[in-house]
């Protein structure tokens, strides 16, 4: 690895000529030294390759009692991991979906409120005394003659005093 990096560095960075000359001189001096007769080791020369024919035809896998449990453990771990992951992500996803729905509903609510106000406005206009008077005129309605209108005193008027209804009914039942 270091050689590869050195090669790359040499290629891209380069080496100065002085350094190269020093290196050559050093090699030459080493070569001419009388006592130093051994060769330098080549890179990776301690790696030996052998070819050996192996016959596995008679090899039978021995049943490992730990394998099924390891398998189940793996499945369980994977499932647990998946559940945990889903458990962690699901609320966020649900919240996001719910958020979209809530915002849509909020918009709808605002729209409905606007429509409600507009309808109330229209209703108020339609039941305004002015408009009702126009309708009454079209239909030839007239105000009742004062003498035809009779208002009962409040305390005798069942419409204005509903409690009298029950008391009257009880009195009638007693009779």
């Amino acid at each position: 690895m270091a050689t590869l990096v050195a090669t790359l560095v040499d290629r891209f960075v380069g080496r100065s000529k002085a350094e190269a000359a020093d290196r050559e001189a050093h090699l030459e001096r080493s070569f001419h030294k009388p006592v130093d007769c051994r060769l330098r080791a080549f890179p990776n020369e301690d790696v030996y390759f052998f070819v050996k024919v192996i016959d596995n035809s008679t090899v039978v896998r021995e049943a490992d009692p730990a394998t099924p449990s390891a398998c189940w453990k793996t499945i369980a771990a994977a499932t647990t991991g998946a559940v945990l992951l889903i458990g962690l992500l699901l609320p966020s996803a649900c919240r996001l979906i719910a958020g979209y729905e809530i915002e849509d509903l909020r918009k709808q609510r605002d729209l409905l409120l606007q429509q409600k106000v507009a309808l109330e406005m229209e209703e108020a206009r339609l039941v305004s005394p002015d408009h009702l008077a126009e309708l009454a005129q079209d239909q030839a309605f007239v105000d009742p003659d004062p003498k035809s209108v009779i208002h009962l005193p409040w305390k005798y008027n069942l419409a204005m005093n509903p409690s009298l209804w029950n008391s009257s009914l009880r009195a009638a039942e007693k009779q």
Binding site: R95, L96, G99, Y100, I102, E103, R106
Partner: peptide, 9 residues
């Protein structure tokens, strides 16, 4: 979101 659609308020 990226489409300027509201999802939380």
């Amino acid at each position: 979101d990226v489409a300027r659609r509201g999802y939380e308020s």
